[in-house]
Amino acid sequence: MLPSVEVDPWRFCRDAQSWEIQSDVAAFPRLAREFTQGALFCRVVGRVDQRGSLSLHVSISGEVGLTCQRCLGNMPYTVGLERTLYLARNEAELERLDALPGSDAIQAGERLSLVELVEDEVLLSLPLAPMHAEGECSLRGAQ
């Protein structure tokens, strides 16, 4: 189990701090329930842009195993995420940042769990019903 990594998100961004980890998915509490196997490389970098907006650049990559919903067999899945998340102090700022083209924002408080942030991003990227391509299931009759 990964230790909780909590940061002050505002300082993390202002100081251009970074955090990275390479770990088996079984070490992530919520991801261990979704994946049958695999490992992820995760990096979170704090930034301040030219307008003074604070953001987190999140990169996650790796190969994991999902359960195919058609045949219930193991299905390899490639995770490849690159996202920039702007920090919002309140609901109004969150709505304003989300309205910008190509912008994603999160409402941040005094503490932010980087492990939970990574888990959220991975879980949001997963297909709703993972399935092998037509004709690739391991069990006959499951197609």
Rank of each mutant, 00 (worst) to 15 (best):
Q107L: 10
V7F: 06
E34R: 13
A99G: 00
E121A: 12
A108M: 04
Y77T: 03
L94T: 05
R11F: 03
E110H: 12
L66C: 06
Y77G: 03
Q107D: 02
Q107K: 11
A133C: 01
R14H: 14
W10R: 02
P3E: 15
S59N: 01
L97V: 08
L72E: 10
T67K: 12
S23E: 15
G52P: 06
G141P: 08
E95K: 06
P9K: 06
E91N: 13
D15V: 01
I60S: 11
C68S: 14
V115L: 03
V58F: 03
L94K: 11
L81T: 07
V122D: 08
G80R: 09
L40P: 09
S103W: 04
E93W: 05
L31F: 02
P76H: 13
A142P: 02
C71T: 08
W19N: 00
L40H: 03
N74H: 11
L128Q: 08
L54I: 09
P29N: 07
Q37Y: 15
L139E: 14
V58D: 07
E63S: 10
L54W: 09
L97F: 09
Q69M: 10
D24T: 02
G109L: 12
Q22N: 05
E63G: 01
C137T: 08
G62P: 10
G62M: 02
F28L: 01
V45R: 12
L100E: 10
E91V: 11
P101R: 03
H57F: 12
L112S: 04
S125D: 07
Y86E: 02
E110C: 09
D98E: 14
S125V: 08
S53G: 01
L123T: 02
E6N: 12
C71Q: 07
H132S: 09
V115H: 06
D15R: 15
P76R: 12
V48D: 00
L97H: 01
L40W: 09
R11P: 05
T67M: 12
L31P: 01
E82W: 01
R51T: 10
R111D: 05
L123G: 08
E116T: 04
V122P: 04
L40S: 09
E121Q: 15
V118E: 05
S18H: 14
A108P: 04
L117R: 07
V122I: 10
